[in-house]
Write a protein that binds this DNA or RNA. Sequence first.
RNA 1: GGCCCCAUCGUCUAGCGGUUAGGACAUCGGCCUCUCACGCCGGUAACGCGGGUUCGAUUCCCGCUGGGGUCACCA
Length: 487
Amino acid sequence: MADVRVRFAPSPTGYLHIGGVRTALFNWLYARKTGGKFVLRIEDTDQERSTPESKAIILESLRWLGLTWDEGPEVGGDHGPYVQTERLGLYRAYAEKLIASGHAYRCTCTKADLDAQREALKARDPKANFKYPGTCRDANRPASEPHVVRFKVPTEGAVTYVDKVFGEIKTPNGAQQDFVLLRTDGIPLYNFGAVVDDTTMGITLVARGRDHMVNTPPQILIYEALGAKVPEFAHLPMMLAPSGEKLSKRHGAVSVTEYREKGYTPEGVLNYLVRFGWSCGDREIFSMEELVEAFTWETCGRGDGKFDAKKFLAVNHEHMKQDRLQSAQTYADRTKPFLVARGLTLPASDEHLMAALKTVRERSRTFIEAAEGADFYFRAEPVVDEAAATKFLVPAAAERLQGFTQALANAPAWEEKALDAAVHAWLEAAGLQIKDVAQAARVALTGRSASPGLFEVLAVLGREVSLARLEAGRARAAAAPAPAQNG
RNA sequence: GGCCCCAUCGUCUAGCGGUUAGGACAUCGGCCUCUCACGCCGGUAACGCGGGUUCGAUUCCCGCUGGGGUCACCA
């Protein structure tokens, strides 16, 4: 299996859909696992919808995910070009070859005419199954007239292939019609373009979504007519919306771009998607290396699955938390853009940034949450949650805050353990418990009622800032109106 | 409707003839605790139905039901 060649062939008609990412991922994993090549090809033969912007977004998304390609746009390779509209001559040549060998023919029926026939039939019998009637099948139309090229599907027999995940699939030829290979303008249709490209690019295995399973029999017919080697096929079960419908924009975020913007880690995204239709016993969380190691087509499932945003978040959370999956440095680098987006000034040293992020890491499910949670470290003054301040920075807390602050100021070293010890010594002497001052101190230091542990915060914030914020909090508490007496 | 595919907790799944049907997410209790989390402990929760095959079916076969995909000069 040293010469495995697989490909991902998106059409540049929008953002990269997470369903497409999953397809790309499985191909990529197989290539990496076998030491084969992962080829990226752009199928832009739908000129109505294809855009250069979309192509750029797709390439960027794949790079962000780390699904690097060995051959394709921007990296080159020996089987290029890797964009279909740059290969038009090839399709034309192969079509001529099929006409010459009697496997295809020119058809001058117009689309308008065929559409009319289809509708007429449907009007007569809504359940009827329209197939191209074969008007031009044996008519030998001249090349001088406007025409499409159709494949001459055998009237007898069936196509049988062994799918790597679904097993043997058999489809009678009678169920197929003489499909179009080349349009009037000479641009190939999906099935033809894919086969010509896959065969000329030496693709050995085609893995794609189950929604393409219906395309496999006609494609195999083309390979055979061309006298080309038929590649292996592996279809992946569908990823459906929670409602059971096909997953689309109306079901929430479906593009990689959105998850990137929401602060997901690329590995988290990939890890969630790989568990769709693939499993490895009870294991759920994998690093990319582990995935490459564990991947096989045999352990792919066949049942469709439903997208679950909560599980997705949970899987991402694991990748956010585990140091094994993401180093502190990577975590910091990835959080930076989100910090900047909040208008915060990044600390001069990565060490300080990493120390701050370490305190919010386990409670952050995304980088957005990490940036939000660490917000108070990077402002001159914390953004104050007024409800929390009103509740905890009350006159009764002023004195305790002062004692707390004093204890800290006298600590032998501004370091978590020492601060903790100093505060507890004071607490004991004053006959208080940490909970008697914790929330007031927390609001003074962070502006909120929920934050990382007090001593962690103090240590990261530093002596000067901490003492200043505590004093400001004490002042506010002392000046606050006494809470209403009751009972 | 034709063709193709699928079927274990709400969701993702383990299971490859004999299990108290396991894990994860979600959910509900509890513990931990300076808050929020994290972590830990525990609960609720599944083999769609009917025939076979077999000493024995979640597991193998058939049918049914249910669900999905696809039927373009889109991909």
